[in-house]
Computed example of a mutant assay.
Amino acid sequence: MRIAVEDLVVSFSGRAVVCGVDVVAEPGEIVGLVGPNGSGKTTVLRTIYRHLRPAAGRVLLDGRDIRKLNPSRAARHVAALPQERGTDFELSVREVVAMGRTPYKRAFSGDDTSDRDIIATALEQVGMVDHGGRPFSALSGGERQRVLLARALAQQPDVLVLDEPTNHLDMRHQIELLALLRAQRRTTVITLHDLNAAASLCDRLHVLRDGVVVASGAPRVVLTVDLLAEVFGVHAAVVEHPLTGDPLIAFDHNTPAESATIS
């Protein structure tokens, strides 16, 4: 499915924190939102998965205003992995993942064979198939992250909305997660602080600063030395990754860019 954010404005206490943002993810495309802290990335995502109501603009799912869909139908199409995640579930890992099947269930109905197969597949995809009986509350931060991603996958959505999904993951599991997202080729809108991960994963990037999109395009077009200095406040060189051919950003950790304002 195609997701389109059109002329989005989101305000808090009368102050616009996102202003005039346009973002499009075509079917099967992975689109990244990058930018400094406070630039509005998470606010845009929250609007896509209906956690926030925009002051102006709209989010279209295959041309339909997502606010006009009932919550259950919207949840069948869009699954989210937000940054703020409940960590006090008194449930097993499998029970948490089973929550992803809720949009397809009638009240008080249990899981059928199809649900159980979908849940097992989701756990396998994130490498947690052997942990289904463990208490969710006993997991490490990285393990919880993977279980919550499995819950989103169990929704079988057309669109995935992921806010910093590699947080708390060690390097191996970060790489496995990015490979999983690439292999699925599901319409995805994602925020990532790791610009090299974003350059490797995403088909297109939107760079936000102070609630406004300041650059859009393919990673190798967007991630320039000048933009990195102006928006992120860093000196860097952009070279070709010797293994993948993707843009690779080599940061100068000793010298911040004097001209940039870091928020």
Results as ranks from 00 to 15, higher is better:
residue 69 L to H: 09
residue 70 N to R: 11
residue 71 P to L: 08
residue 73 R to M: 02
residue 73 R to Y: 04
residue 74 A to H: 11
residue 75 A to R: 00
residue 77 H to G: 06
residue 79 A to R: 05
residue 79 A to S: 13
residue 79 A to Q: 04
residue 80 A to P: 09
residue 81 L to Q: 06
residue 84 E to T: 13
residue 85 R to K: 12
residue 85 R to L: 15
residue 85 R to Y: 01
residue 86 G to Q: 09
residue 86 G to S: 05
residue 86 G to Y: 03
residue 87 T to S: 13
residue 87 T to L: 11
residue 88 D to N: 14
residue 90 E to W: 05
residue 91 L to S: 07
residue 92 S to D: 11
residue 93 V to S: 05
residue 94 R to K: 05
residue 94 R to N: 04
residue 95 E to K: 09
residue 95 E to Y: 06
residue 96 V to W: 07
residue 96 V to D: 10
residue 97 V to E: 09
residue 97 V to G: 04
residue 98 A to R: 01
residue 99 M to Q: 10
residue 101 R to C: 02
residue 103 P to F: 03
residue 104 Y to R: 03
residue 104 Y to H: 13
residue 105 K to M: 13
residue 106 R to V: 05
residue 107 A to G: 03
residue 108 F to E: 02
residue 108 F to I: 09
residue 109 S to T: 12
residue 112 D to M: 02
residue 112 D to W: 00
residue 113 T to F: 07
residue 114 S to K: 14
residue 114 S to F: 14
residue 115 D to R: 08
residue 115 D to N: 13
residue 115 D to A: 03
residue 116 R to Q: 12
residue 117 D to C: 08
residue 117 D to V: 08
residue 117 D to S: 12
residue 117 D to R: 15
residue 118 I to E: 11
residue 118 I to P: 07
residue 118 I to F: 09
residue 119 I to H: 10
residue 119 I to F: 09
residue 119 I to D: 13
residue 119 I to Y: 08
residue 120 A to G: 07
residue 120 A to T: 11
residue 120 A to D: 15
residue 121 T to M: 08
residue 121 T to Q: 15
residue 122 A to V: 01
residue 122 A to G: 02
residue 122 A to L: 01
residue 123 L to G: 06
residue 123 L to W: 09
residue 124 E to V: 08
residue 125 Q to Y: 03
residue 127 G to Y: 07
residue 128 M to E: 06
residue 128 M to F: 11
residue 128 M to I: 08
residue 128 M to V: 14
